[in-house]
Simulated scan of single mutants.
Amino acid sequence: MFTALLLEEKDKKTHASLQRLNEHQLTTGDVLVKVDYSTLNYKDALAITGKGKIVRQWPMVPGIDYAGTVLASDHPDYRIGDEVLLTGWGVGEQYWGGLAEKASAKGDWLIPLPPGMSAKRAMAIGTAGFTAMLSLMALEQAGVKPDQGPVLVTGATGGVGSVAVRLLAGAGFEVHAATGRPEHADWLTSLGAAAILSRSELDAEPAPLESQRWAAAIDSVGGRTLAKILSQTKMDGAVAACGLAGGVALNTTVMPFILRGVRLLGINSVYMPREKRIAAWQRLQRSLPLDFEDQAQVLTLEQSIAAAGDLLAGKLRGRVVIQP
């Protein structure tokens, strides 16, 4: 038996509760994992509160990522006692996820914890940090360099944004952080932001082209904010789009692309190939401070239910780690 946060659909509404489940209910894959830590991501919050169409089948254990220790394995790459982590692959949406004491996964979805990385550190980074690193790597592959000018990060107090600020600053970029929560300006500055912008500056209807401000951007908001950023990106700049908190529609023009050579880079962290996953996680281990996990908020499974609403309401900042 093990404890899990279970989501059930009753009267077309989502109900979340802690329940004791049997291991035989875990039928997803060929590796059984003792979950040491998971996280609370934006997508998890949407699933738990029922405010987003995240869950694809019921009942569902949410949690799109987790790190832990192998309890049993029929996969040739993993043995009992191996330390592993998982992000993406539809876990927490289509397959039971990590907000539980145990989880079952296909071995091909897992990767070993990088040398020196604890399960807590891995989940303090989590899907959000992994996405931030993929975004940074995409900008670098697009040729963006620190001497080209400031890089904008939207949703900067969120999981992806806060890690992106750290990573960009650590890589030598001048980081401008956009947030709707000015009370956290000092915290963002401590992460490495050189300037703080109000979210409202990017929420206005954009012109086809505006004054060139950004060498690049990492955007977790989408919608009109992304359209605004594209219109303000410098010649030969690039924008990594990795979120949709502000909406899925993108009403823009071709002008930033054909008159300035701006590149829009889509970041898909869910189905990233294994080799790129390992490379990104190894770089995360090297790039983030040794005490990074100490700055994450640690909650229990029971606390994650209320925290999901707080996250959507903008009451949380940074990373939230869940310890089953």
Rank of each mutant, 00 (worst) to 15 (best):
M1S: 13
L6D: 01
K10S: 08
K13V: 10
H15W: 09
S17D: 14
S17W: 09
E23C: 08
T27H: 12
V33D: 04
L40M: 10
K43T: 10
D44H: 02
I48C: 08
G50P: 02
W58L: 09
P62G: 06
G63W: 01
V70T: 13
L71H: 05
D74C: 00
Y78M: 06
G81Q: 09
D82L: 02
L85W: 07
V91F: 11
V91P: 00
V91Y: 14
G92M: 06
G98W: 02
A105C: 08
P112E: 00
M117D: 00
K120M: 08
A122W: 10
A124F: 11
A128D: 12
G129V: 14
G129I: 14
F130P: 08
A132K: 12
L134T: 09
L136Y: 06
L136Q: 01
M137W: 00
L139S: 02
Q141E: 15
D147Y: 09
Q148F: 11
V151L: 06
T154R: 06
G158A: 12
G172Y: 08
E174A: 04
G180P: 04
P182E: 15
T189Y: 03
S190M: 08
L191I: 12
I196R: 07
L197R: 12
S198R: 11
S198Q: 12
R199F: 01
S200E: 11
E205P: 13
L209I: 15
S211W: 05
W214P: 12
A215E: 01
A216L: 09
S220K: 06
R224P: 00
L226A: 05
L226W: 03
L226K: 07
K228N: 07
K228Q: 07
I229V: 15
S231E: 04
T233Y: 03
K234R: 12
M235G: 00
D236E: 14
C242H: 01
L244S: 14
A245G: 10
V248W: 11
A249Q: 15
G261H: 04
V262N: 06
L264K: 00
L265T: 10
S269R: 07
V270M: 12
V270E: 13
Y271G: 03
P273L: 09
I278W: 07
Q282I: 00
P289R: 00
L290V: 12
Q297I: 09
L311G: 10
G314Q: 08
R319F: 03
P324S: 13
